[in-house]
Lab assay of single mutants.
Amino acid sequence: QSFTCPYCGKMGYTETSLQEHVTSEHAETSTEVICPICAALPGGDPNHVTDDFAAHLTLEHR
């Protein structure tokens, strides 16, 4: 399964590499985005909106 960065649209990330990408490239970004990992999880929330995606990844998807 691969994920797309909700900020810049780059594709092909794993859960881990998406977290690394967001932390390095978009750490200061506070735009509201939908978490693509939550959306892909069975029973996950397809509409989970977060305005601190880097922190959300760290808390929810480590």
Rank of each mutant, 00 (worst) to 15 (best):
S2Q: 10
S2P: 02
S2H: 14
S2D: 12
S2Y: 07
S2N: 13
F3C: 00
F3W: 01
F3A: 01
F3H: 06
F3L: 04
F3G: 00
F3T: 01
T4S: 13
T4K: 11
T4W: 01
T4C: 07
T4M: 14
C5A: 00
C5T: 00
C5M: 00
C5Y: 00
C5V: 00
C5S: 00
P6F: 01
P6N: 01
P6K: 00
P6S: 01
Y7P: 03
Y7I: 15
Y7K: 04
Y7R: 06
Y7G: 06
Y7F: 13
C8W: 00
C8K: 00
C8Q: 00
C8G: 00
C8M: 00
C8R: 00
C8D: 03
C8P: 00
G9V: 13
G9S: 08
G9L: 13
G9W: 08
G9P: 11
G9R: 05
G9N: 12
K10H: 03
K10A: 08
K10N: 11
K10M: 08
K10W: 01
K10V: 07
K10P: 00
K10F: 03
K10T: 07
M11H: 15
M11W: 08
M11P: 15
G12M: 00
G12V: 03
G12P: 15
G12Q: 06
G12S: 05
Y13T: 08
Y13L: 14
Y13M: 08
Y13R: 03
Y13W: 04
T14Y: 01
T14A: 08
T14K: 12
T14C: 08
T14D: 08
E15N: 06
E15I: 14
E15V: 07
E15S: 07
E15L: 08
E15W: 01
T16V: 10
T16F: 10
T16W: 05
T16G: 10
T16D: 09
T16I: 09
T16K: 09
S17A: 10
S17V: 08
S17E: 13
S17N: 06
S17F: 11
L18R: 04
L18K: 06
L18M: 10
L18A: 05
L18F: 09
L18W: 00
L18S: 06
Q19R: 00
E20A: 10
E20K: 07
E20M: 04
E20D: 08
E20P: 10
E20F: 03
H21Q: 05
H21Y: 04
H21E: 07
H21P: 03
H21T: 05
H21F: 00
V22F: 04
V22W: 09
V22A: 09
V22R: 02
V22D: 12
V22C: 15
T23R: 09
T23P: 15
T23W: 05
T23S: 09
T23M: 15
S24L: 09
S24V: 13
S24K: 08
S24P: 05
S24E: 10
S24F: 05
S24D: 11
S24Q: 14
S24I: 13
E25D: 05
E25M: 07
E25T: 11
E25C: 07
H26F: 02
H26W: 03
H26Y: 01
H26C: 05
H26E: 14
H26K: 10
H26V: 05
H26P: 03
A27Y: 09
A27I: 12
A27L: 10
A27F: 11
A27T: 11
A27W: 06
T29L: 08
T29G: 08
T29H: 06
T29N: 14
T29Y: 10
T29C: 12
T29E: 11
T29R: 08
T29P: 06
T29Q: 06
T29A: 14
S30K: 15
S30D: 11
S30T: 15
S30H: 09
S30A: 04
S30P: 04
S30W: 05
S30Q: 12
S30N: 09
T31S: 12
T31H: 15
T31M: 08
T31P: 03
T31I: 12
T31E: 08
E32W: 05
E32V: 14
E32Q: 07
E32F: 03
E32M: 09
E32A: 13
E32D: 06
E32S: 14
E32C: 08
V33E: 06
V33Q: 03
V33N: 05
V33R: 02
V33W: 01
V33F: 02
V33T: 02
I34V: 13
I34F: 01
I34L: 07
I34Y: 00
C35D: 03
C35L: 01
C35I: 01
C35K: 05
C35Q: 04
C35A: 02
C35N: 05
I37N: 04
I37V: 13
I37D: 03
I37S: 05
I37W: 01
I37R: 04
I37M: 04
I37T: 02
C38M: 02
C38D: 04
C38E: 06
C38L: 02
A39M: 04
A39T: 11
A39I: 08
A39H: 08
A40K: 08
A40N: 10
A40Y: 05
A40P: 08
A40F: 07
A40H: 07
A40I: 09
A40S: 13
A40V: 09
A40D: 02
A40Q: 10
L41M: 15
L41Y: 14
L41P: 08
L41S: 12
L41E: 15
P42L: 04
P42D: 13
P42C: 13
P42G: 12
P42I: 12
P42R: 07
G43E: 14
G43A: 10
G43C: 07
G43S: 10
G44C: 12
G44L: 07
G44V: 09
G44A: 13
G44K: 14
G44Q: 13
G44M: 04
G44F: 09
D45I: 06
D45Y: 07
D45E: 10
D45T: 10
D45Q: 13
P46R: 09
P46I: 07
P46G: 05
P46A: 06
P46H: 06
P46S: 15
P46M: 11
N47R: 13
N47A: 10
N47K: 15
N47M: 07
N47S: 13
N47L: 08
N47C: 09
N47V: 08
N47H: 09
N47Q: 14
H48D: 13
H48C: 13
H48K: 14
H48A: 15
H48F: 14
V49T: 12
V49W: 12
V49Q: 05
V49M: 12
V49E: 04
V49H: 12
V49P: 05
V49G: 07
V49A: 12
T50V: 15
T50E: 09
T50F: 11
T50M: 04
T50P: 07
T50S: 09
T50Q: 09
T50A: 07
D51L: 11
D51F: 10
D51V: 12
D51G: 15
D51A: 15
D51T: 14
D51P: 15
D52N: 14
D52P: 02
D52G: 03
F53E: 03
F53L: 02
F53Q: 07
F53V: 03
F53N: 02
F53D: 05
F53A: 03
F53T: 04
F53G: 05
F53R: 04
F53I: 04
A54E: 05
A54C: 07
A54N: 13
A54M: 08
A54S: 10
A55S: 14
A55I: 01
A55F: 04
A55G: 12
A55H: 11
H56N: 04
H56G: 02
H56D: 05
H56K: 02
L57A: 06
L57W: 03
L57S: 06
T58R: 12
T58Q: 09
T58D: 08
T58F: 06
L59M: 14
L59A: 15
L59R: 14
E60G: 11
E60W: 07
E60S: 06
E60H: 10
E60P: 01
E60Y: 06
E60N: 07
H61V: 00
H61R: 01
H61W: 00
H61I: 00
R62P: 15
R62Q: 10
R62S: 15
R62T: 15
R62D: 15
R62A: 15
R62C: 01
R62N: 12
R62E: 13
